[in-house]
Design a protein around this nucleic acid. Structure first.
Length: 207
DNA sequence: TACCAGGTCCTCG
DNA sequence: CGAGGACATGGT
């Protein structure tokens, strides 16, 4: 199985995905914040629901690193309610922002200047950030060449007869076989999600 | 009406 | 460790 060919096939079938399209000219810090918040809110949740939560934060003029960090957890939970697991996620968001504040003075640029794997370890130590969430942040907000693995990715490989024991084996499988390119990783992951969504809608095996 | 959605943490054996 | 449960809303 050659991931490069699979990528081309998906790209042909689904077209460009333009993920994390940060609307408006907001600058890096705001964009990175939004991506990281989105990465946490989308855990086991549809992006459609996450969008409602993000809109709530914007409407409440609460979508800044400092506001999210300092507002009462109960209030944050209510704002992100549509994304589900809102109590858990309010806790996770504030744990993450506390980390960014404590280690990097609230600067995402500074945080993502760290070497990717070192930062990955730090992120994984934060409550609520597991491998997929950490890798999504690194790839989409930090522009680090880390291949993101999710449930669809595993299903995608499983259909081709490839399975592994743990997350990192899936990640390395792709990283070893693709050229080390951030845009490629970003697009590939998004395409696999597009494939997965279509598959679950149509209950079939897209290929 | 059930089941699923771009997971993660905690508890038990 | 590994399985099993909790967390929760909105769409189909």
């Amino acid at each position: 199985m050659d991931p490069r060919r699979e990528y081309m096939a998906l790209r042909r079938r689904y077209g460009p995905q333009h993920w994390w399209p940060v609307d408006g000219p907001k600058g890096y810090e705001a964009a990175a914040l939004e991506i990281c918040v989105g990465a946490i809110l989308t855990q086991n949740t549809s992006w459609q629901n996450v969008k409602k939560a993000l809109d709530n934060l914007r409407s409440a003029k609460a979508f800044s690193y400092k506001m999210l960090l300092t507002m009462p957890r109960k209030r944050l939970a209510q704002l992100i309610r549509p994304s589900g697991y809102y109590n858990q996620k309010a806790l996770k968001l504030q744990a993450f922002l506390t980390f960014v504040a404590a280690e990097y003075g609230g600067s995402f640029r500074k945080m993502f200047k760290q070497p990717a794997m070192a930062l990955r370890e730090q992120l994984l130590a934060v409550h609520g950030i597991g491998k997929e969430t950490a890798d999504s942040m690194l790839l989409y907000a930090g522009n680090k060449p880390i291949f993101v693995v999710d449930a669809y990715t595993k299903r995608f490989l499983a259909e081709k007869g490839i399975t592994f024991g743990d997350y990192d084996e899936y990640r390395v499988f792709f990283e070893k076989r693709l050229r080390r390119n951030v845009k490629l990783y970003q697009e590939f992951h998004a395409l696999i999600v597009a494939w997965g969504k279509e598959g679950s809608r149509k209950q079939n095996v897209a290929r």
